[in-house]
Simulated assay, not measured.
Amino acid sequence: MTTLEITMYELGRLFLMPVLILILLLFAYAFYALGAFAVAAWQRRRGLAACPLREQLARHGRLDSEELELVILRRLEPLRVVSRTAPMLGLVATMIPLGPALLALGDGDLATVGEQLVVAFAAVILALITASITFWILTVRRRWLLVALKRIEREEAGA
């Protein structure tokens, strides 16, 4: 391999551990968000949940629809970012170990190939589970917030 190829190979390998740590952090966040979602769903079902948009209105006074839409986007942004970046990080965490796995395969070292592939597949599975959970929560929460926005708009139109 040339110096450029070796440099790129080593630089790519440097990113494996940070990407794996990020995937684990996002996985933990997904389960935290799932717990918060379950509590919110339980509160909604029992009629105990306060409307988050009404909280914003109480805090800031009268807000128009566009400002409330920005509040909705701001509330959903962490879920959206996680649901979109987790699969990309999973792909990165899959591709990085493939280089060493292919090199080990060329040397006939099947144990190293197996070790590298286990890391690659475990990372992508966790990333996809993370993305699935956060996307599902994002979708339902967006519906809840848009229903609340529509209700507020109707009340203000009638007032």
Rank of each mutant, 00 (worst) to 15 (best):
M17Y: 09
T112Q: 15
V140P: 11
A50W: 07
L70P: 05
L14Q: 15
P87G: 00
A50D: 06
G61P: 06
L20C: 14
E66I: 03
P97C: 04
F15C: 12
W136H: 04
G90F: 06
Q43P: 09
T112P: 13
F121K: 05
E55H: 01
P18E: 14
A123P: 09
I137C: 02
A120S: 01
A120T: 00
I21C: 11
V71C: 11
I21F: 15
I72Q: 07
A30G: 02
P18Q: 12
L79I: 14
L73K: 14
I72P: 04
R74K: 13
R80K: 08
G35V: 03
V71W: 10
A123D: 10
R46M: 11
L14N: 15
A148N: 02
V81E: 07
D109R: 07
T139M: 14
L102T: 08
L105K: 06
A58G: 08
L98E: 00
D107Y: 14
Q43I: 11
E69I: 04
L20R: 08
I72Y: 02
L126C: 15
R84N: 14
R62D: 10
G90I: 01
M88N: 11
L146G: 04
D64N: 09
V124G: 03
L79S: 05
L26A: 12
F31Y: 08
R141Y: 00
F37N: 01
A33W: 02
A93R: 01
E67T: 08
A127I: 09
V119M: 03
L25E: 01
L128T: 07
G35K: 01
V119S: 01
G90N: 00
R141V: 10
R143F: 11
H60D: 08
V71K: 08
S83H: 07
A28Y: 13
V147L: 14
E69C: 12
L57K: 02
A50G: 09
G108E: 15
A101D: 06
D107K: 15
L57R: 03
P52K: 03
Q56E: 14
S83Y: 06
R46T: 09
L79Q: 04
L89R: 06
A104L: 10
A93N: 02
L105G: 12
L63I: 01
A86K: 08
P52V: 03
G47F: 03
P18R: 10
G108V: 14
Q43A: 10
I21E: 15
T139R: 12
L91D: 11
R54N: 06
L89C: 06
W42D: 13
L26M: 10
G61E: 12
W144V: 06
L79T: 13
M88A: 11
L138P: 03
M17I: 15
L53Q: 00
L126M: 14
